[in-house]
Design a protein around this nucleic acid. Structure first.
Length: 657
RNA sequence: GGCGAAGUAGCUCAGUUGGCUAGAGCACGCGGUUCAUACCCGCGGUGUCGAGGGUUCGAAUCCCCCCUUCGCUACCA
């Protein structure tokens, strides 16, 4: 196999706030298949994955668990790495953002960008819009007011460092236009262009002072480096980048990356911020960023409280590692989210793995044993039907290669299984059991079985990158070695006269949907119990800290008029996704109030509630509807809302003070 | 509200620059076969190609409009 050059592939690094589900692991399986394929195809592959371990969420979770953040992430990172190993992921490097070398480089990078003026310290005076909760730079203000809502902006407390994104925007736009392959699938490219690049990029906040669990800015240690500059740079620090120009040979060889494989939710950071960071550092841009779709169950996102999270280890226990790999790879379309149910999974595994593949291997070996005591010999008794089989089998590589070039892994797998389907058909065409009854046809029978073994060997050779263990099991039973890609294009490489195993093992047992259902129900129960336990625990201990606002005087407070209001009717606001419009009786008057709470309350359940109303807020139009006040809500860290209602019965109009 | 994507057989989806009776896998039905994990092989669809207009000799494929779903984004007092 010729050397086709280096190939550097990465996955996104997994956030260590908890155990990832199969929808997260999907990415690393996909990356692994590509990495293994490229390796086998003659590329010098380097495959990096890892964990993203900083941030406020982890700081909080660790505090909750009563351990240090480091101990917390050590534990979760161990779990994540364990799942990778379980899934047979052939990573060359598993990076953690708490690794020394990474932290040092991030500090150096930060400093360098600061020194060259790309990062500047934000001075917020007069630039924070409280209602919008947004920071603005001088240049973004419109007539000195918030560019979003047009209201006064005021000084803010927290200082932070910003990255000048706009400086590089034109270069990035040009790059994206010149390299249509840069963002995949292309529909994502339009989103990035239309929503961010063309309207103009805002500067990105790259430091925080509100939590400590991060990489300190070494020349200003009140600050820690905020997520993206920390996380994204793993792609270069992991292979030996040095911000002072002393990068390793490995870095020089591998960079730029050939493929960043990521979820579609973080495309923006990878196709905008990351390239701009690289430009600022004077480094080349990665060749391609592929934002893959998600693995959804019943079109819902998975969640613990629904009890429908599929974890890789549970799945592997139920179905086996390669079955899980096959399933996620096969079922995932290229552009749209994949839809997954347990039933689909059982069906897929039964029909493809057990029936088509497993049974083919089994019946072939059985016949070899039955008719020739397991010795597979090419007697060269050819017939016309053989030609089509041979063509189909030896031509498969080219078809697979074409699909893989487009990263269409699911389609590549289908091509491989077409080889096995073709072999099954060949058995019917040649009817070995008929040949066996005729002593004069003995050589023909031997040849047929040889052809089958050869076809299976080639199929297994193609299958190896996707299902490495299965390929190995097949070849062990055939008492031969796994084929490289050179020897999967010519027919007849299986050593004639080899004796196959006497006792073929079942590669994939057929699954009974009922049994699986029962086991799934068990899993769901366990999950919901855990979720319940966590929730009650969290409700006791969970706290939220928000940014402190400026002190106000009593007079300022007294200017706000709060009253109890009774909701007498409520309906959704047409043309809006999140708004409800309520008629609220406050004393003897009725106010129309629009609130962004549709996701948490239905119009029906709103009616009759007594709620806390800010009455003397200046009326404003929302989505074309007049709103004459504000319903007050509490909001948790996940953005869930709860209306404030009086603790005892109070008449409508009662003042709140 | 802005931008974009998708709507094709019961299910999951293919359908390249418009062109021959619209396809695959699974499921289902019938037939064949028995080496094999009740498996494999063959055959089978009246599918309004979301609705309606239009361009064309000809449209699932291009244009217009509408409906539905989804994504990104904004708003969410």
């Amino acid at each position: 196999m010729q050397n086709k050059g280096k190939y550097y592939i990465t996955t996104a690094i997994a956030y260590t706030s908890g155990k990832p589900h199969i929808g997260n692991n999907y990415e690393v399986v996909l990356a692994d298949s590509i990495a293994r394929y490229k390796r086998k195809d003659g590329y010098d592959v380097f495959f990096q994955t890892g964990t993203d371990e900083h941030g406020q969420k982890i700081e909080l979770k660790a505090a909750e668990a009563g351990v240090t953040p480091k101990a917390f992430v050590d534990n979760v990172a161990g779990t994540i790495r364990g799942l990778c190993d379980l899934l047979n992921i052939s990573y060359d490097k598993f990076i953690r953002t708490t690794d020394d070398f990474h932290e040092k480089q991030v500090q150096k990078i930060f400093k360098r960008l600061y020194n060259q003026g790309d990062i500047y310290k934000g001075a917020y005076e007069g630039m924070y819009c409280t209602p919008c909760e947004s920071f603005w730079t001088e240049s973004q203000l419109k007539d000195g007011k918030c560019p979003d809502c047009g209201r006064e902006v005021k000084p803010a407390k927290e200082e932070a460092y910003f990255f000048k994104m706009s400086k590089y925007a034109d270069r990035l736009i040009e790059h994206i236009n010149k390299h249509p392959e840069f963002i995949q699938p292309v529909s994502r490219k339009n989103e990035m262009m239309n929503n961010f690049l063309l309207p103009g990029l805002q500067d990105l906040c790259v430091s925080r002072t509100s939590f400590k669990w991060g990489i300190p800015v070494d020349f200003d240690d009140k600050h820690v480096v905020y997520v993206w500059l920390d996380a994204l740079t793993n792609y270069i620090t992991g292979i030996g980048y040095d911000a002072d120009g002393d990068s390793t040979d490995q870095y020089k060889k591998l960079w730029p990356a050939d493929l960043h494989l990521i979820g579609k939710d973080i495309i923006r950071f990878h196709t905008i911020y990351w390239p701009i960071f690289l430009m600022a550092l004077g480094e080349k841009l990665p060749h391609q960023i592929f934002g893959h779709p998600w693995l959804l169950q019943n079109n819902d996102k998975m969640s613990k409280s629904k009890g429908n999270i599929m974890y890789a280890d549970d799945l592997a226990e139920l179905f086996g590692v390669d079955a899980v790999r096959y399933f996620v790879l096969h079922e995932m379309p290229f552009e749209n989210d994949g839809s997954i149910t347990w039933d689909l999974m059982v069906e897929r595994l039964n029909s493809d793995l057990a029936n088509t593949l497993g049974n083919l291997v089994n019946r072939t070996i059985s016949m070899s044993n039955k008719y020739f005591d397991g010795v597979v010999e090419n007697k060269d008794a050819k017939e016309a039907v053989d030609d089509d089989l041979k063509a189909a089998v030896t031509g498969a590589y080219d078809k697979v290669e074409a699909k893989m070039d487009e990263l269409r892994v699911a389609d590549a797998l289908t091509e491989i299984f077409n080889v096995f389907r073709r072999c099954n058909k060949y058995i019917d065409e040649t009817e070995p059991w008929v040949l066996a009854k005729n002593e004069a046809r003995k050589d023909r029978l031997a040849t047929v079985l040889y052809n089958l073994v050869e076809g299976i060997s080639i199929g297994a050779g193609l299958l190896e990158p996707f299902m490495p263990e299965t390929a190995q099991r097949i070849m062990s039973q055939l008492n031969s070695q796994i084929r490289d890609f050179d020897s999967v294009k010519t027919f007849g490489m299986y050593v004639s006269g080899t004796k196959v195993t006497e006792t073929p093992e079942i590669l994939f047992a057929r699954l009974d949907p009922k049994e699986i259902d029962a086991k799934v129900a068990e899993l769901a129960e366990r999950q919901m119990a855990e979720a319940g336990a966590v929730q009650t625990k969290e409700s006791d201990t969970d706290v939220i800290n928000i940014e402190p606002k400026d002190e106000i005087t009593y007079d300022e407070f007294a200017r706000m008029q709060f009253q109890v209001g009774e909701i007498i009717s409520c309906e959704a606001v047409p043309k809006s996704k999140k708004l409800l419009c309520s008629q609220v009786k406050v004393g003897s008057q009725v106010k129309q109030i629009v609130s962004g709470i549709k996701a948490y309350y239905s119009p029906e359940e709103m009616v009759g509630k007594k709620v806390m109303v800010l009455v003397n807020l200046k009326p404003a139009k929302l989505a074309g509807v007049m709103s004459e006040g504000m319903l007050l809500c509490a909001e948790d860290a996940d953005g869930n809302l709860a209306l404030m209602t009086p603790e005892k019965t109070m008449p409508s109009g009662a003042e709140i003070m």
